[in-house]
Structures are given as structure tokens and as C-alpha cells.
Design a binder for these strands. Sequence first.
DNA 1: CGAAGTCGGCAGTTACATCA
DNA 2: TTGATGTAACTGCCGACTTC
Length: 204
Amino acid sequence: MTTQTKELEDHMAIISQMYPAMYTPVAPQQGKPKPRRRRRKNKGGESGAAAEAKKRKLSDEQVYLLELNFGNEHKLESERKDRLASELGLDPRQVAVWFQNRRARWKNKKLEEEYGKLKTAHEGVVLEKCRLESEVLKLKDQLREAEKEIQGLTERVDGVSSNSPCSSSVLSMDPPPFLGEFGVQGYDPDDFYIHALDWMNLFM
DNA sequence: CGAAGTCGGCAGTTACATCA
DNA sequence: TTGATGTAACTGCCGACTTC
């Protein structure tokens, strides 16, 4: 076996993996030919007998060369089509049709890939949304607890406010930065408890 | 400039081969 | 035998280009 032949076989193996259904070996026509259903019309003007004589399935080598050409350029200029057709022993029309169908398959494949990517991305976003929603619920709970605690402390402070030396300055302070639900800009949930404790220490 | 012809591309369809 | 699937080939339409 020559290196070139081996290379061709390797390429065919790869291509066969990509398009398994395209490369089943052509079985020689044996016995009496089955009657074919009639097409609607034959625009090409080819006689029925001539069309009948044509091999329907392209050979592995023909497909391999067509794939190589398609890999280089998906579009087919007239000159290249004629050259390819004579190289492969095909009608230029067959080459054009093959490229057309191949472009359609390629487009479908790309659409499927794109769909897969979008689906994965969408699933990721839905997951992240769930995570964020549960985090919001958790933070709301924490906020409620903190507000309850502050309420209790405030009531305690009110009870002794009349004889506390610092009461006036404390009571005149701005409300704590964590009061109110999500109304504070620059609020960092990680620092929530640290800030809350700092603020409460003023009363201790 | 515009009508007519040609050509290539695409979407959709049909006919056929192959396989489970 | 039959239904599903892949593919070659077809139809019909459209836009770009050329010719007259």
C-alpha cells in the first residue's frame, strides 16, 4: 500500500465518521433493475434511458474529492465545477447539485450546533436564576432577623434614654445603613453582619 | 434605460437505496 | 415487509449579471 493510498484511507475514515450515511459502498447493480417511480418532470431534457444508465450513488473517491473541494470553498465557480466534473467523470450538473445539497447539510449541522449551544446557555441561565432567587430569599430572612434584633435593642435603649449621657447623640444619628429592603446603594451582603454589629456596638 | 435571457443559489420536495 | 433515514436529483423562485 502506498503512502498516498494510506492517507486517502485515513481521510476517508475521518469523513466517514462525520457523514456515516454518505459512504456506504456502492453495490453493483445485479439482476433485473427494479421499475422506478416516475419523476414529475425531466427539465434537463435527458432521455429516460440515459438517466437510467447513470450511477445513482457517487463512489468513495468521488465523494472524497468533492469533500476536499468543499472544505476549501463552499461555493463553486463555473470553472472549478467544470474542472472537478471532468476530474471525477461526472456531469457538471451533478457536481453543482452535490455542492448544493452539501451546503444544505452543512447549514443544518451548523443550526443544530447553534441550537445545542443556545440550549446549554439557556439551561445555565435558568440555573443561575434559581440560585439567585434562593439567595434573595435567604438574605430577606437575614434582614428580617436583624431588623427584629434592632427593634428589641431600640426598645431597650428607649427605656434608659433619660439618664444616658450619649443618648442624644446616638438618637440623632442617621438610620443604620442596612435598614430598608434593598434601598441602600453599595450594599454588600458579605459585610452585612459586620456593619450591623459595628452599628449596634454604639449602643453597648 | 428596460425587457429578455442566462446562471447560480436556496428552500422545499421527490425518488430511491439502505438498514434495523 | 415496513418505516426511518440519508442522499441524489428535481422544481420553482429569486437576484445578479449580460445582451440587445
